[in-house]
Design a protein around this nucleic acid. Structure first.
Lengths: 183, 183
DNA sequence: ACCTAATGAGACGTTGACGTCTCATTCGAT
DNA sequence: ATCGAATGAGACGTCAACGTCTCATTAGGT
């Protein structure tokens, strides 16, 4: 009888990632609960999206913690981050395209904190001579988000194997498509 | 008095790329025409989106033609492609997220043709030893789309300078973030 | 077994965008 | 200058999703 709020958020995230215009009724049925119950826990669609945002930020932050970006080489740290973010990628792809979250004056400050942590990793890689300096940390951060979203979508559509997720993103982001002169 | 259909499509693309849920009324006003006139030329919202899809495919195809992907090194061809696609990036970013276009049984076959042309470029690069072979052409194609969209967004938000658009995408996609062993 | 709180199903009114229509106005060709 | 076609503004009905409410049912603790 007790509604598992966490579980509802996860189901909603999975559904909305595929169909961002899904109805409250569809969200409720996907979660196996009634529409009334959904409304009892999330005042409305806005509240649901906000809750998903908070959930996504929380999960993203947890992934950052687990990846221990300060330890070891920046490249390896990035690989760990990609691995830890695989499960959040779909949700983040949805949230990023939900411009409703970024137009009001009530923009969740969590995003800035997350961006800063990711950017710091790229900056560290540059300062330690591991990453090139002609690509700004801000752009590398955006590129990481973009690749995570693209790959999540490609996996959902069956164009990329789920097992290749981490490798495809990390390798492309680190080494690019060009063959290295030296291995 | 004559409505410039092409111009309307361009304005609609620019608006919908930023706010994909924009109203028909907002689209009309952005284009400087009345809502009634908009409806006279596009039977409804679906028709408008379909017209945008056709327009995007047309522009994308023209960019592919201009880039002459068969000529010269694959890396240089990719650079030309990125350059030619800069103006279509926003529209494509919108179309790709418009899942309405890809769920019915009436999926425009143009996408497959475009994907094939881009994939062929990556495959050529691999066969000629210029690109690495552990990243599939399909994934590289998806990654290109993702980076184009991310960078277009970053430019709109002012996080990346418009002048850096081509360089950031082409360099990241070709060389990655890691410093090359040899220049 | 009882009691309380939560749930599911559904009815109901509201709202916003849609699509259609009318009519006066304006553009542009002749 | 004239005439026909296209436009803008707005009114109107429709419809889907929303948010609220009620009520019977069920779950779970005591």
């Amino acid at each position: 009888m007790a509604m598992d709020r966490e579980q509802v958020l996860r189901t909603a995230a999975a559904l909305l990632a595929r169909k961002s215009t899904a109805t409250m009724d569809e969200v409720a049925r996907a979660a196996g609960i009634g529409r009334a119950t959904l409304h009892r826990h999330f005042a409305g669609r806005d509240a649901l999206v906000r809750a998903l945002e908070a959930y996504g930020i929380r999960e993203f932050e947890a992934a950052l913690d687990r990846a221990r970006l300060d330890e070891g080489g920046a490249g390896d740290a990035l690989r760990r981050l990609v691995a830890e973010m695989e499960n959040v990628a779909e949700l983040l792809a949805f949230l990023v395209t939900e411009n409703q979250l970024f137009e009001g004056d009530q923009v969740n400050e969590g995003w800035a904190r997350l961006d800063a942590r990711v950017s710091a990793l790229f900056r560290r890689g540059q300062e330690q001579g591991e990453f090139r300096i002609d690509l700004s940390p801000v752009w590398l951060t955006e590129a990481l988000y973009g690749l995570l979203g693209s790959c999540a979508w490609a996996v959902m559509d069956g164009r990329v194997a789920k097992n290749d997720f981490q490798y495809m993103i990390a390798e492309l982001l680190l080494g690019g498509a060009r063959r290295s002169v030296e291995k």
